[in-house]
Nucleic acid binder design. Sequence first.
DNA 1: AGATGTGAAATTCTTCACAGCG
DNA 2: CGCTGTGAAGAATTTCACATCT
Lengths: 210, 210
Amino acid sequence: MIKSGKDIPDKTLERMVKYRRILDNFEAEGKAIIYSHEMAKLAGNTPSQMRRDLMSCGCAGSTRAGYNVKEMQHKIKEVLGFSDTKHTILVGVGNLGKAILSYFSFRVPRVQVVAAFDIMPQRIGRVISGTRCHDIHEMETIIKEKNVTLGIITVPREEAQALADRLVAAGITGILNFAPVTLDLPENVYVENMDITMKIEKIAFYSGEN
Amino acid sequence: MIKSGKDIPDKTLERMVKYRRILDNFEAEGKAIIYSHEMAKLAGNTPSQMRRDLMSCGCAGSTRAGYNVKEMQHKIKEVLGFSDTKHTILVGVGNLGKAILSYFSFRVPRVQVVAAFDIMPQRIGRVISGTRCHDIHEMETIIKEKNVTLGIITVPREEAQALADRLVAAGITGILNFAPVTLDLPENVYVENMDITMKIEKIAFYSGEN
DNA sequence: AGATGTGAAATTCTTCACAGCG
DNA sequence: CGCTGTGAAGAATTTCACATCT
């Protein structure tokens, strides 16, 4: 999908999320000032990359004294968007689905999971980490009712494409896909893939002397 | 970590894994020849990127006739390394851990999960998708015994760094980390992070007109 | 004609190096 | 000084365009 017209580089955005998490911790500790090299250490990158990233979000760091934690936090949240919350559903309440639902008890800013879906009767009606699991037949209705725009796919590979089509037809514009297939969807839908086995193979490839 | 001296670009490697999966399906269907544009469609990229990738693995596609499925498959497997299997453990047998263990029943080439670990008594001794869950106290012993070199971390955030240190001390050289923290580890350990909440926020950011 | 293979351009991302501020 | 801000260099990745082959 074509990225919408935000001027902030993709990789920078990814790191921004990380920075926010780190800053949240700092705030909790009452730390008020942070240097780019401290931040870089915690984020696993370099000071200059850190500073470059901050430029993209118009973040003023006062010379000599480092960056003001609260201000930086505010600016980053502004970029990531803290105003409107997007409604999300998750489809496929197996182990993976359950695991992801529990991530949300730790609250992901901007994103709220409003319902989960499955086909298995024994899962329907249950509440997992605060989210109710519905029969998948109700999916389209609930998407419309609750104004859902994001979908998380945690169903088996074979079912992923058909499900994605249904989600898109129902009006969803962003998908996080955990199934190991490439989804074929219209350009205006933004898709991110979480390819777990790929990552494992990457580790096998790079680790050790090889 | 510094990448070991393989000449193949990082992104290409990632796509290679995807290509292999696609080829496996093709082989099952008995298809013998494939064109770069077909492959690109299935992998969600462009024909020229596809061809460029194949160059990196010395993959001969005969002009006009496209690529020979079996040969391409062979070359890719050669690059990804199909000879030696790396032994892997997973630590943290919650929902996420269980989900990942079940991925392995679908067989990830090159990688074999030989044991799982947890601290919770009710999990210890159980067998999940063919992998036995041990008490975490046995971890170091089993790593040595079974010559384990890769570790998958699916414990809560607070425990991840300490666990990673233990893994590295015990001789592990590659880690797949699902906890949302940056692990601070020696240069010679290769780490990949699966940052689920980050991906979700990315979708929230890019999807829709925003 | 319809593929592949590949220099070369274009784009994106990272790092360097250093001016300038407090 | 030590730290930020940033132009400019450098590296990595993607895309273009076209010669070449059957």
